[in-house]
Amino acid sequence: MSALVVDGLKKRYGGLTVTDDVSITVEEGEIHAVIGPNGAGKTTLVKQICGDVAPDEGSVSLYGRDVTHYSVHRRAQMGLGRTFQITCLLEGFTVLENVATALQAKRGSSFRFFRPVATERALNDAAFALIARVGLAERAGERVANLSHGEHRKLELAVALATEPKVLLLDEPLAGTGPEEVEPLIVLLGEARKSVPILLIDHDMHAVFSLAHRVTVLVNGRVIATGSPAEIRTNPAVLEAYLGEEGELAHTEAAGA
């Protein structure tokens, strides 16, 4: 059974069709990447998958269950984990607390009023293990507001993993990271894939082609191609769309990635 099936999603704003009959499947064990130039409708697609925006037509299913009309938190409870394009963390909390809060959502009821949560050893230990996994062990006690941008991205990933997702949606996880920060993140994503199927939305061709098993290309709200990275690289429609936009694909290809 496919982990995530997006089937024929349509969303119009006024006269503008922002996503037009978009269908994507994510199979277990794979990273499926969605790429597309700015304005291709990636953000609106993410919002429909997560439940922020209701589609006009089409459906979203998680492991065979239609979740199109489920709220954001219900989808999350069912195993849809996500990261945000623009970092969305609990700024006043520490790194450890951010991850522990995410873990708490899945481990036992949160309608517990009396036991101090800071003393819940099992929760804290598990959180710490995840933090160590993304390489933030030394920053565990730091408040999120004091972290660097790259550390924010790592923490986003740790928080998403802490929800113990069955499908992980990564919305531009590399956005705004410097070149020296990209590599470790890519390694992390590759590791994460072993435990959870991933839908990866990104600009970064280099990362996408090195990580993804399959790639879907979105242009002006439509899917113009789906296939393996090798197929996509040589797909004439994709080349045209990208050459017209920014020529990034050609550049990546020339670099022999």
């Binding site: 963390l89 809060t101 819940e120």
Partner: peptide, 27 residues
């Protein structure tokens, strides 16, 4: 005690970022 409990942490988390708490699966 309530503020320091699991419930209190969720409440404080909502105060920090409602969007994030929704995405974590909290109603």
């Amino acid at each position: 005690v309530i503020v320091a409990s699991r419930f209190g942490r969720v409440l404080r988390g909502i105060n920090e970022s409602e969007k994030r708490m929704e995405a974590l699966g909290y109603p």
